[in-house]
Design a protein around this nucleic acid. Structure first.
Lengths: 227, 227
DNA sequence: ACAAATTTAGACAGGCTTGTCCAATTCGTC
DNA sequence: GACGAATTGGACAAGCCTGTCTAAATTTGT
């Protein structure tokens, strides 16, 4: 075991660590250059690995691409469901709790590295690999919307919201809190913390104007009147 | 018809027709395969011309790509502003008029061939050609939102809506009426007429729950109470 | 119909990329 | 330290693509 300072930029890594490193670098290059434009040498260099190692681990370019997509899909879905678990089921202040939830959702799932990469790969190559992205579609957005809809339905049942169709409300919630980030997303950019917060704030405000229950609203107005 | 101008200013009609045909075919191939994956032979075949003609008209692959983007940007912006001109400034039935407007917007600008192609090119190559898409960004979304915001402000001033910030309302209107089409757009697909109508109907309903003026609402309720 | 411009098909060089092979080196583990 | 597995760098063939060139065929304007 070497105890001296290693001059290498890349410290020694295990077999599995290298496999992961290759997938990470591949994700970056596939996203930046597209599938056809991606260069295995560039990926190997990005991973700090020889080209042969890339082939040893993943066979060929297409298998590597699939590994990248599977990896991103899995991590993104995990992040999304972890974040949905933080939904404010018993809100202290509904508006600020929903804004905070929306910001978490954006920061942890949509704007982060994995989210942006997966979105770009889906947009660029989705038509070429239908079966690959069909899995994402069912596991990801489908279940996300259902889970979110269930949470909103619970809020409505508890009297915090007035919702006809929880599925529609869930989709519209996501659309609203991202309304001002569309352009940034389309160009693959990363919105600033301020932009995320502003979009979420405006979106939640509109969402509550549409779906806020009259009970909660009048209670709040009464509280304001008392003060 | 002849004005005695030098003939070389007027290229033969089929010359120009071929130029257009090449750009159209190029748009299709660039979108399907990405910039790096696009093949000039494929474009030439799609346009029904020889490869040399492609080079005669457009120089090289990059110039051809820029011509494609400029073409799509121009046509899309023209379509968007033509559609915004049909905004219901004096609505008979606000809800159904806004739904019809949203459907027009989707059908003529967002879901049509040019819209889908331009969106995909921006997503795939936007970071590689910042100056090219910066123009689109300013001429397109920026002006679209301003124009739409102005129309909503007028509706609010006339008492049909209750809006704090017309710019935010305009962006949220677009986000809401497209809320249920996101997945289809992401995969580059074309939503059915029913999907467009349903998304617009749900979106406008929520929009009006949030921004419908109390005057109009209470007038409607009064009318219902009278009946 | 004639002359000029345009288009075509095909060949071609040059460059780049994928994927393989191999000998030398390094790593992990005993 | 020693042994087997993994890794490296480089060379390599094969294929693809861009962009150029040419000579022949076609179209256009007059």
């Amino acid at each position: 075991m070497k105890l001296g300072v290693s001059p290498d930029i890349f410290p020694p890594r295990s077999h599995e660590a290298k496999r992961i490193s290759v997938v990470e670098a591949a994700a970056s290059v596939f996203c930046r250059e597209g599938y056809a434009g991606a260069n295995i040498d560039l990926i190997a260099a990005g991973a700090g690995v020889s080209r042969q190692t890339v082939y040893n681990h993943h066979g060929d370019k297409e298998k590597l691409f699939m590994a990248v997509v599977r990896d991103l899909t899995e991590r993104c879905n995990a992040g999304i469901f972890a974040t949905i678990a933080t939904f404010p089921d018993q809100p202290a202040d509904l508006e600020s709790d929903l804004v905070a939830f929306a910001v978490r959702m954006n920061r942890n799932c949509i704007c982060n590295r994995d989210g942006r990469f997966l979105r770009k790969l889906i947009q660029a190559e989705g038509e070429r690999y239908p079966e690959l992205f069909a899995e994402w579609r069912e596991q990801g957005p489908g279940r996300t919307w259902s889970a979110l809809a269930a949470r909103f339905a619970r809020l409505a049942y508890a009297g915090h919201l007035s919702i006809d169709d929880p599925d529609v409300a869930a989709r519209q919630f996501l659309a609203l809190v991202n309304a001002e980030l569309q352009i940034t997303f389309m160009l693959g950019g990363m919105p600033t913390e301020e932009e995320v917060l502003r979009s979420a704030t405006n979106g939640v405000r509109t969402f509550l104007r549409a779906f806020g229950s009259r009970k909660a609203t009048s209670a709040k107005q009464a509280a304001l009147a008392h003060a």
